[in-house]
Simulated scan of single mutants.
Amino acid sequence: MRNFGETIRHIRTNRGIKQNELYTDILSKSYAIQFEKGLHDISFYLLLQILDRFPMEVDEFLYLHRDYQESESSWFYSSIGKFGNHNDLAALKKFKQDYLSKYPNSEHQEERLLQIDFRVEQLTFYYATGEIVGGTVEPQIKEDIQKLLRNIQAWTMEDYRFFCNVMDLVDIFDMPQYFKLLLNSIDQYKDFEDGKPIICTLLINGMTKLIFSNMLEEAVKILPVLNDFTKEINQMFYRNYYFFFKALVSLLKGNQDAIAKANRTIEIFRDLEYEFHAEIADRILKEILSEADIQN
């Protein structure tokens, strides 16, 4: 991979910007020349100043720097999400080999391989029994994942993603404490647009687990947070989930008129061709109605 300076030079020349226009009051002429040749590094602070002159966001710069490729984290989580959500066991097993081949020396290899192994264990059991249950996972995988969760000190996006993928292994009686910690830290990311899909997915998974564990009081605490994170127009997909869970909570409190509202959100998923999510929401609603002995 080329040096940051070489990427900056590529962007600068493509946009017809002269060196003195870009580097004045940031780098000396001689240092800028060496930087663009890949012979000198600069601080992140100076890199931000240079990018601001284009202007260009850091995420876009890194995307260009990687030759229009996703980061390791983005590639990993988009892939495991795609194969896992479609219950594609063969693709998940292949993905594990692809990951090891593409990132053999990754600093995050341990936790990412654990996430793949966990999902493979779940799907293997699912194909054999028709159910997905955390208790069927190999004890060593479960122990390693729970150890990693316990060692998290300050929650970041990477930690949110990890927790979201392994939530089924968290003891239901520990869930309130985890979400108490999470809800305190999540608020700091309310203006971080790139993180909202991750946080929304985490909240949706948490709502599902808490509702099915008859912990309605805890689920209700998550609902207003999901509401706050889904008010922008680019969050419409997650907004529909918010209204789905709002209807479920109302239904569980005895309001049978909420059934129609829940069904409407399922139809919206179908109209938008999110068939997988329509099926998941429909299954959740039917199980709740069945347990409550209510006709849909």
Score class of each variant (00 low, 15 high):
residue 10 H to K: 15
residue 198 I to W: 03
residue 261 K to L: 09
residue 83 F to N: 08
residue 257 D to C: 00
residue 204 I to L: 07
residue 41 D to C: 06
residue 50 I to M: 02
residue 182 L to A: 12
residue 87 N to H: 15
residue 243 F to K: 06
residue 201 T to F: 05
residue 107 E to S: 13
residue 286 K to C: 04
residue 203 L to R: 01
residue 183 L to G: 02
residue 171 D to S: 13
residue 46 L to R: 11
residue 215 M to K: 14
residue 270 R to L: 11
residue 206 G to S: 04
residue 164 C to T: 15
residue 223 L to W: 01
residue 88 D to V: 08
residue 107 E to G: 14
residue 264 R to P: 00
residue 215 M to T: 01
residue 188 Q to P: 00
residue 262 A to T: 02
residue 38 G to W: 05
residue 60 E to N: 10
residue 31 Y to E: 04
residue 192 F to R: 04
residue 289 L to D: 03
residue 270 R to A: 12
residue 267 E to I: 06
residue 61 F to L: 07
residue 77 Y to D: 05
residue 55 P to V: 05
residue 227 N to Y: 13
residue 53 R to K: 15
residue 148 L to K: 11
residue 272 L to C: 12
residue 280 I to E: 12
residue 52 D to W: 00
residue 227 N to W: 04
residue 98 D to Y: 09
residue 121 E to C: 13
residue 101 S to L: 13
residue 40 H to I: 03
residue 111 E to N: 14
residue 114 L to G: 04
residue 294 I to Q: 04
residue 121 E to H: 14
residue 151 N to F: 08
residue 156 T to Y: 12
residue 139 P to Y: 05
residue 214 N to A: 13
residue 280 I to M: 12
residue 131 E to W: 07
residue 18 K to G: 07
residue 160 Y to S: 05
residue 249 V to I: 15
residue 198 I to N: 06
residue 46 L to W: 00
residue 13 T to I: 15
residue 282 D to G: 08
residue 280 I to H: 08
residue 80 I to K: 07
residue 150 R to M: 09
residue 66 R to P: 05
residue 156 T to E: 11
residue 130 G to V: 07
residue 109 Q to P: 01
residue 252 L to V: 01
residue 160 Y to W: 09
residue 284 I to Q: 07
residue 211 I to E: 00
residue 246 K to E: 10
residue 101 S to V: 02
residue 146 Q to A: 01
residue 208 T to W: 02
residue 247 A to N: 06
residue 118 F to W: 09
residue 274 Y to G: 00
residue 208 T to N: 12
residue 152 I to N: 03
residue 171 D to T: 07
residue 231 K to Q: 14
residue 277 H to N: 14
residue 46 L to T: 03
residue 220 V to T: 12
residue 26 I to M: 01
residue 133 V to Y: 07
residue 253 K to Q: 14
residue 296 N to A: 13
residue 15 R to V: 02
residue 89 L to S: 09
residue 196 K to Y: 01
residue 287 E to D: 14
residue 176 P to K: 01
residue 190 K to W: 00
residue 274 Y to S: 07
residue 19 Q to F: 03
residue 276 F to M: 13
residue 166 V to S: 12
residue 134 G to C: 03
residue 83 F to Q: 08
residue 13 T to S: 13
residue 198 I to M: 07
residue 4 F to G: 00
residue 114 L to E: 04
residue 255 N to K: 11
residue 170 V to Y: 02
residue 134 G to Q: 03
residue 155 W to H: 08
